[in-house]
């Protein structure tokens, strides 16, 4: 199990996350729902251990081990991985080489092809193409999703997996979630689109850096639709007073 205990994070004197606690059980599918700027991606970066995202308070526990101070690659070796919302390009590296990390990951060709097909890319057309600027944003995103399927991760954080991808994306993302789960992994989708969370078991709704709701995905989605659909201040819905500082409350009331 992956547990976040009372995570708080502040950057440039602005509180981004406050006292966040979450639990992710093996084999279940999760979503972290929230509008843009709610702190979802930051939370993903903290779980992954990116350099500039060390929480000021709180702990991250993986199967009983405190991994709060472990570097990225050590967390990755323990099964955690992350797909960035906008993954970078890599000059000169073919998709085939990228998926296997330059040959470091040993995988049957047929399985690799199956993974590319799972993300909607034809192996014949894409295996030799470079992971550079010749790929569109959507193609690049699909390659990134394929790259984490190759890893068969324990916990895969997918930051806005549908962004930049065409209308067929929901089905493809569901395929990705199912693939991860079928290999014993736990996908964690970070999204602002409630329909992306419809295929998961459990969801957290965060707003302005705090958890507003948690529970069955269907229930959290309803709450999210009710509260965030009418909110004129995306990161400080009126009901979320506990998430605001007194100064913010003052600004909202103005």
């Amino acid at each position: 199990m992956l547990k976040l205990e009372n995570i708080s994070y502040k950057a440039e004197n602005k509180i981004i996350l406050r006292d966040i606690s979450m639990e992710f059980e093996e084999g279940k599918k999760y979503a972290i729902l929230g509008v843009n700027g709610a702190g979802k991606s930051t939370l993903g970066y903290i779980i992954m251990g990116l350099e500039d995202y060390k929480p000021q308070t709180g702990r991250i526990i993986l199967d009983g081990e405190d991994i709060t101070n472990l570097p990225i690659y050590e967390r990755a070796k323990r099964g955690i991985t992350l797909v960035f919302q906008e993954p970078p390009r890599f000059e000169g590296i073919s998709i085939g080489a990228y998926l296997t990390l330059g040959g470091k990951i040993k995988i049957e060709k047929a399985e690799l092809e199956n993974i590319l097909e799972t993300v909607g890319l034809s192996p014949k057309l894409y295996m030799s193409r470079k992971v550079n600027g010749s790929l569109s944003g959507g193609e690049r995103k699909r390659v990134e999703l394929a790259s984490i399927l190759v890893l068969k991760p324990g916990y895969a954080i997918l930051d806005e997996p549908d962004s930049g991808i065409d209308i067929m994306s929901l089905e493809m993302v569901n395929n990705v979630l199912n693939y991860i789960a079928s290999h014993g992994g736990t996908p964690i989708i970070i999204t602002h689109r409630e329909e992306m969370a419809e295929n998961v078991d459990f969801a957290y709704h965060i707003c302005n850096g705090v958890v507003l709701h948690k529970g069955k995905a269907t229930e959290v989605i309803e709450e999210y639709k009710k509260e965030c659909g009418i909110c004129d201040h995306p990161n400080a819905p009126e009901k979320n007073e506990k998430a605001m500082t007194s100064k913010e409350k003052e600004e909202v009331s103005k």
Binding site: M48, E51, P71, A76, T81, L82, P88
Partner: peptide, 14 residues
Amino acid sequence: NRRQLETLMAKGLT
């Protein structure tokens, strides 16, 4: 590029 490094490190490379 840091983001390139982090992307690969998130897959287990040092």
